[in-house]
């Protein structure tokens, strides 16, 4: 499915999308590794090494395609559920999980990695993506910003404001909505009445696309088109990927209180990793050895992640005050000295 909702657009980017075999294999590899790291993170959360972990199990096609659709100067604006996209965006998994480890709020350099910190508030980061895209245009650069969010976030005012402003300024932004059916416990039928979230693009006068978010090939094709559409000055794109949140909201959630387990079955049958594996195998493009190599690499990375996350992070109270201000007011300096001199008794 790939319903294009063309409206009163000034132009339309229809690039020659040619997915290479290498791109598909890279996608499969990143999905397998991503899922393995995601499972490791869930386990680490259950064992108390992470304070919490929102899993993206079942959404790997979206996660990997989002990161792999971007060019070398483009920025990613992820949410708390997009750790796998951030792994794929080549950020060290330990640094991605810094926030969830309770070590610090963000463990990596956003500018060096062209990736904003995980956004915990819903949809507020969509406007940040628009700002970055507008700044890019002002500076004569060709960067694209991709903002990730879920179906729940589309109910937020900031989502609307971001799309509207991006439309008015033709900002090079891709708003990628992973419609996974739930906002914690609230099903998407309680979030919106629209037939499709992609239809909302019509109201903003921008391009909207709907794609099967469990189909890696379709998802990365649509996202690449969207990124190039935005990059070439045709304005923002809203992409809705239909998928399913197989896991609970986080390890602290209990989905049995609000949905039947059987509901997941059709989605499990359309598992994105199984589908791409099956496709490449049927085409004779995936040797059994290659698959085993990927799985081995995933195991190794998961073991490495566990090993490093289990090392207790250094808790230096000086960090509390170091970066609140560039030039801190006197009362913070007093408190800093007080905290550094006190002996902590739990």
């Amino acid at each position: 499915m790939n319903d294009r909702t063309e409206t009163t657009l000034d132009g339309y980017w229809t690039p020659p999308t040619a997915l290479t075999l290498v791109a598909l294999r890279n996608g499969l590899r990143a999905m397998i590794i991503g899922r393995r790291l995601d499972r490791q993170a869930s386990n680490l959360a259950k064992q108390g090494y992470l304070t919490v972990y929102p899993s993206s199990l079942g959404q790997e096609a979206c996660q990997v395609a989002a990161a792999q659709a971007l060019g070398p100067d483009d920025w990613l604006f992820p949410t708390y559920r997009d750790s796998v996209a951030m792994f794929t965006h080549r950020i060290d998994p330990v640094k991605v999980l810094t926030m969830l480890r309770g070590d610090w709020h963000c463990g990596f350099d956003p500018k060096a990695h062209r990736c904003a910190p995980h956004s915990t508030p819903l949809a507020t980061h969509c406007a940040h993506a628009v700002g970055l895209a507008m700044a890019s245009v002002k500076k004569g650069e060709k960067r694209v910003a991709m903002a990730l969010c879920g179906d729940g976030a589309t109910s937020e005012g900031d989502f609307h404001e971001a799309l509207n402003i991006a439309a008015v300024f033709k900002a090079p932004v891709v708003f990628f909505v992973q419609h996974n059916g739930y906002a914690i416990s609230t099903p998407s039928r309680r979030q919106f009445r629209a037939k499709s979230l992609a239809d909302k693009a019509i109201g903003y006068g921008i391009r909207g696309e709907k794609v099967d978010g469990n189909d890696f090939v379709a998802t990365i094709s649509v996202l690449r088109d969207a990124v190039e559409h935005a990059r070439n000055g045709f304005g923002p794109v809203l992409v809705e990927a239909r998928t399913y949140r197989v896991s609970p909201h986080t390890n602290a959630d209990d989905p049995d209180r609000y949905r039947n387990r059987s509901e997941a079955e059709p989605w499990l049958e359309h598992d994105p990793i199984a589908r791409l594996t099956e496709y490449l195998t049927a085409q004779g493009r995936l040797a059994r050895d290659t698959l085993r190599d990927i799985e081995d690499a995933a195991e190794e990375l998961a073991a490495d992640l566990r090993r490093r996350v289990m090392i207790p992070p250094e808790a230096d109270p000086a960090r509390l005050f170091a970066h609140v201000y560039a030039d801190p007011p006197p009362h913070l300096q007093e408190q800093r000295i007080a905290v550094l001199s006190e002996e902590y008794v739990a």
Binding site: T124, H128, V130, G131, A135, S136, K138, G157, D158, I165
Partner: peptide, 26 residues
């Protein structure tokens, strides 16, 4: 117009856009 410009009436959006712009040094 690229140094001083009108925005849609969307204060949260205006603030969010400003924050995003700082990533590229504005």
């Amino acid at each position: 117009k690229d140094r001083c410009f009108d925005m849609p009436i969307a204060e949260a959006g205006i603030m969010g856009v400003a924050i995003g712009m700082t990533a590229l040094g504005l």
